[in-house]
Write a protein that binds this DNA or RNA. Sequence first.
RNA 1: UCCUCGGUAGCUCAAUGGUAGAGCGGGCGGCUGUUAACCGCUAGGUUGUAGGUUCGAGUCCUACCCGAGGAGCCA
Length: 447
Amino acid sequence: MASLIQIDRIQDYTGQEVRIEGWVYHKTHKGKLLFLLIRDGYGFVQCVAFKNDLPEELFQKILKIPQESSVVITGVVREDKRAPGIPGGFEIGITGFEVVHQSIDDYPVALKEHGVDFVLDHRHLWIRMPSQWAILRIRATVIQAIREWLDNNGFINMDTPILTPAACEGTTTLFETQYFDEGKAYLAQSGQLYNEANIFAFKKVYCFGPTFRAEKSKTRRHLTEFWMVEPEIAFCDLDQLMDIEEQFVTYIVKKVLIERKAELRSLNRDVAILEQIEPPFPRISYDQAVEILKEIYESNEDKDNRELLKFDWGMDFGSPHETALTEKFSKPVFVYGYPTQVKAFYMEPWQGRPEVSKSVDLLAPEGYGEIIGGSERISNPDLLLDRIRQHGLPENAFKWYLDLRKYGSVPHSGFGLGVERTVAWICGLHHIRETIPYPRTIKRIYP
RNA sequence: UCCUCGGUAGCUCAAUGGUAGAGCGGGCGGCUGUUAACCGCUAGGUUGUAGGUUCGAGUCCUACCCGAGGAGCCA
C-alpha cells in the first residue's frame, strides 16, 4: 500500500504514489477533468482526476462527493506551478479514492465572504478554512517559540493560580465565583505577584496561562479570556528588562518566519516587514512620546482625527495615540517612564522623579499597539506599604507580598506579553478574535 | 456605560410607499487545467419582534431584542 504522507511534506514525494487522509475542502470540474482541494490538517493540496484514466464508477464517485466529506486518496505526486494549496505548487493525480464519511450536502460555511456574526456562530467549522487554519497554526508556533526561548534562557515555568482571593492589581473588573465557604474567588487577571515570590526561589521564572478580564471592552483588541506569558526576573532593572524583551520578541518572529512561511503567505502577510525585526528596538521616553504626539496633533489637518489625538502629559495613551505613534516606526518601539498615576501601584519610581515610574510598554508597529506591558517593581518594603495604602488596597491580602521585600529584597522586573495581540500583529489581522480557537467576547460565549 | 452602523432565501446583498429579486451555495445537465471556474435549467421567503400611520409597509413612526465597529479601560 502507498505510504501515508502529510501535505506539508509533499515536496519530498514527487513522482511517488502516496496516500493522504483528509477532507474535501473544494471541488470543481470541467467535463472530463476534475479537481479536489483536500486538507489533511497539515496543509491543502489539489487532487486531480481525469475521466479517461479512471474506471467510470470511480470517476462518478469522486464527481458526487460533497464538500467536507472525509476521504482517503491514493495518487501520484507531481510538481505543477498551477496547483493551488498550502504550501501549493504540487498536486496528486488520483489513482484511488475511498469515502470514510459522506458529508450531508448543506455545509453552511461557503467559500465566500461571510458576516462576522455568521462566522463566529460557526467557529467550530470556520477553523477548517485556510485563513483560520493558518492563523491558528501560527498561534501554536508563537506559543512554542515563547516556551523555547524562555526555557533556553534560564527561565523556569511556574504555574500561578487561576482562582485567586482578590484583585492582584486592584484595578480591573474580575470574574467572580463562589469558593465553598471561603467567600468569593476571582479568575486571575495576572500571575505577576506570585511570580515575584517565585523569583526569590528560582531567579528567573514565567507563568503562561489564560487571563480573565470582565471589563466591558468592545473593540478589535479585546477578549474577556486571553493568554498571557509573564516572565519575572530577579536582579534586573528596567534597561536589562528591555534587552530581554527585544531578544524574546525577535526570537518569536524569526521562528514564525522559518516554520510558518507558507501560512503567512496564504494570509497575504507582507513578510518583508517582519524580516527586519532585529534588536535593538527604538527606546523613547514617555516625555519624548508626548512631544511626538504633539507634533502629530499640530500637523493633522483632519479635524475629527485631530480631536482624538489631543494629548497632555499625565494621560495614558489611548488607542488613537498608540496607532499614530507606532506608525512612525517600522520596528516595535519601547515607551518607558510613564506617569506614576496611570500605572499600577507596585512600580518602582524613577530616581529623583517620583511622578514617573520605571515602566515600559512595547508597542507593535503598523498600528497594532501594546503587546507588552512591564516594569521594574518596588523593592523597598516601606514604599510598597505606602503605595498599597494610597491605592486603598486591603493590607491583609498583601501581607505575603510585603514579606518578599523583607527577606532578601532585590531590584527585579517583569513583563506580560499578550499572545493574541502578538499573533494579530504577526499575521497582519484586523481583529484579535481570529487569533484564538474559540474567542470569548462580551457578547459571545458560543460555541 | 456612551456614540455610530446594521438585521430581507443556507450565505453575501438589492428592491422611489405599489406583484420580494440577483449572485454564491444545494439539486439536474454540459465542458480536459480549474484557482471562490464558466454556461443552461431548477428548488428555496412569517423581510429581527411587537404595535402604529396608510387604500397599500421590506421601505415611514414608536418601543423592544440581537449583533458589529469605535470610545473609556487594558495585554
